[in-house]
Design a protein around this nucleic acid. Structure first.
Lengths: 209, 209
DNA sequence: AGACTAATTGTACGATCGTTCGTACAATTA
DNA sequence: TAATTGTACGAACGATCGTACAATTAGTCT
């Protein structure tokens, strides 16, 4: 049933396509998806401009493919490592720490790819914005669902909102101010917030009027 | 000693300059400071391209002037209204609620101006980034100093980090997902975090080992 | 070998970018 | 009134943008 790829031409094409998208995601994390230009991409990769263009057919398709490629890297770097432990508090912590490491290690040179492009496209319509918003929603829901099964969590939506806020704030402060302590602040905030959630049910049951 | 302005020419010039910067800040909050183009600005304001250009001498100067103009609007809209009450918890709450209103009311059509341009310039060097980083630092320090004098606050830097994270998260979610509830989440998070700070000293003194 | 196919290239296009220039006109100064 | 200043203008510049299309190279078939 599996169609094995043996065509060397297609193989080569897919490889250059991967290289293009790799570089495109790196550039976009620094300069944005609009700052990303086909000509520049071609120059840096030492291929022809029309060669780059032919892979996507339009700039918008290049941007969409770049977003998808970045999402795949994000999943590999952040989501998948947390799957090694069962659902629960430990997985949530692994997920949050994984995100901070993904940002701190500069998986993308400009920090979190999605932080950069979200702010760039959040206020204009179009397919690129929709794609970015879709991944953003997925991430929100995944954090919320992961938090929902942690004992003592009573409002996972609210908790996810606050936790993600800490992560993005750390990324923003670190990149803009070259402040490595921002990640410490985020870790501290996450720890305190989860401790608070852990005692919430007990506190609520004792203090409820 | 005061030189009163009576020259009608410079008066007129300053007015068009103000109009240019007003519009420039609006555009930049949506499309970014790079998406801002002199030609487009001229078309929308129905003035000549060279007329716009002459006011600033370079695109970078236009961007810098736009950032300064936005900072002035921010100060008027967010910082100054909180000065009507004395320092303390009430001023801090007025400041935070003022920020949320500034974002929610779409003072700039793309949401918070500085959220947009911070993410755009955070990873590239230059004077524009330095200016944005400077205002960002000012804002951080102002929130921290305002929080520092609130009774029960023992780590104002950490508190400011978390509070600003909630504000920016609300702005981001609201603009990207058209989700008005994001501001409710931020208000709830702020309230809970300040309540926590209010009991922190008491809790610390009783639970300290 | 030659026919076919997919990836890549070279050349060219219209549009727009930031920038420069000389000029026109209104307002101020002498 | 004459000279000067400040703002705004129109035209043009070189560069770069995204896009189009025909030619070429490289790999797969019969």
């Amino acid at each position: 049933m599996e169609t094995v790829k043996v065509d060397g031409r297609v193989e080569r094409g897919e490889q250059t396509r991967r290289q293009i998208l790799r570089r495109a995601a790196e550039i976009a994390s620094v300069e944005g998806l609009e700052g990303l230009s086909i000509g520049r991409l071609a120059t840096e990769l030492e291929v022809s401009k029309s060669g780059v263009f032919a892979h996507f057919g339009s700039k918008e398709e290049l941007q969409l493919a770049t977003v998808r490629a970045a999402a795949a890297i994000f999943a590999t770097q952040v989501v998948e490592p947390a799957l090694v432990v069962p659902v629960g508090r430990e997985r949530l912590e692994l997920l949050l720490n994984g995100w901070l490491a993904y940002s701190e290690n500069r998986t993308f040179p400009g920090g979190c790819f999605f932080y950069a492009v979200q702010a760039e496209f959040d206020a204009r319509p179009g397919r690129v914005r929709d794609a970015i918003a879709g991944y953003g929603r997925e991430w929100n829901e995944y954090v919320r669902d992961t938090a929902a099964v942690v004992p003592g969590v009573d409002d996972p939506d609210q908790l996810a909102f606050e936790l993600i806020a800490f992560l993005e704030m750390a990324n923003a402060q670190s990149v803009l101010h070259d402040d490595p302590h921002a990640y410490d602040r985020a870790r501290k905030a996450v720890r305190a917030r989860l401790a608070q959630a852990g005692t919430a049910s007990a506190a609520a049951s004792t203090t409820r009027r």
